[in-house]
């Protein structure tokens, strides 16, 4: 089975609120002291792919679209034993939305060859749009299933488990197929072995410019301007918490219970 996993490098979503600042001119988060990480759902996707490869023969290609720093996410994927890695470098480094990303990823995938399974994270920890998977499927003209948390290869395709509001569903699907991956307790990303981290530095990474995959600046602009961030602001939060007071813990619990009960009764 040939598997392609799309990875996105994002600003560390665990950055403390106080360290979070906005680059108002570019309407995006300021880099500040935060580090760059692989988006968690992309890591879940890679983990799901690695587990699938352990059970069924296959090859994993890691693909990312981003600035040159995004090579780090590919190195980490290689350290986890992805077979191939490809970076499409975003020379301009401007804000990219799901539409432009899907366009570029689709062009790169067409050039990389045929894949049975194309896996993306359900959403990214920065913009959280959750659109890329679906858009990519349409760009590639493939069917897709979202919120998948485990995959098994079958004789003529794959069986998927995907999460829904109240539980889960089993989906049978033919390949090629695009899936968006969500997390569960089985696809918690593994961490690389130290030796593999050292080795990954020496593995080849295919490095393409947009021109290498026949995407023009006009294509990018067209897709990019269709969806524009016009404002980005840090919300002010002003709620003043009233701490329940009391001479003893019993008194406090009593007062707390009464507050709760009055809200529950009116709800």
């Amino acid at each position: 089975m040939k598997i392609l996993v799309c990875l996105k490098q994002i600003l560390d979503p665990d950055i403390p609120p106080r360290d979070f600042a906005i680059d108002r001119d570019n309407r995006r988060a300021a880099r500040g002291s935060a580090n760059l990480v692989t988006n968690i759902f992309c890591e879940n996707a890679l983990e799901t792919a690695l587990q699938l490869r352990e059970k069924a023969e296959g090859e994993i290609t890691a693909l990312t679209f981003g600035p040159s720093s995004a090579e780090d996410v590919l190195r980490k994927a290689l350290a986890l034993k992805a077979d191939h890695a490809c970076l499409v470098e975003d020379e301009a480094g401007e804000y990219r939305n799901s539409a432009t990303t899907a366009l570029v990823l689709a062009a790169a995938i067409r050039k990389l060859g045929e894949f049975d399974l194309i896996m993306v994270g359900r959403e990214a920890g920065d913009w959280g749009a959750g659109q890329t998977g679906g858009l990519l499927a349409e760009q590639l003209g493939l069917p897709s299933v979202s919120f998948v948390d485990s995959i098994e290869a079958t004789a003529d395709g794959v069986t998927l488990r995907r999460q829904t509001e109240l539980g889960w569903e089993k989906v049978e699907a033919t390949t090629p197929l695009v899936v968006t991956i969500t997390n569960n307790d089985e696809n918690v990303p593994r961490i690389p072995k130290t030796r593999d981290i050292m080795m990954s530095a020496r593995k080849p990474v295919t490095n393409w410019k947009l021109s290498d995959i026949d995407v023009t600046c006009d294509d990018i602009t067209a897709a990019g301007t269709a969806l524009e961030v016009v404002d980005l602001a840090i919300p002010e939060k002003t709620t003043e918490c009233e701490f329940i007071e009391g001479d003893s813990i019993d008194e406090k619990i009593d007062a707390f219970a009464k507050r709760l009960a009055s809200i529950v009764q009116s709800a």
Partner: peptide, 22 residues
């Protein structure tokens, strides 16, 4: 276990990953 096998408690893995990144 940590460097050759990368098999150790999940929360220690989280701490290590955080050390690496942050």
């Amino acid at each position: 276990q940590v460097m050759e096998r990368a098999e150790f408690p999940q929360q220690m893995q989280d701490a290590i990953s955080s050390l690496e990144g942050r």
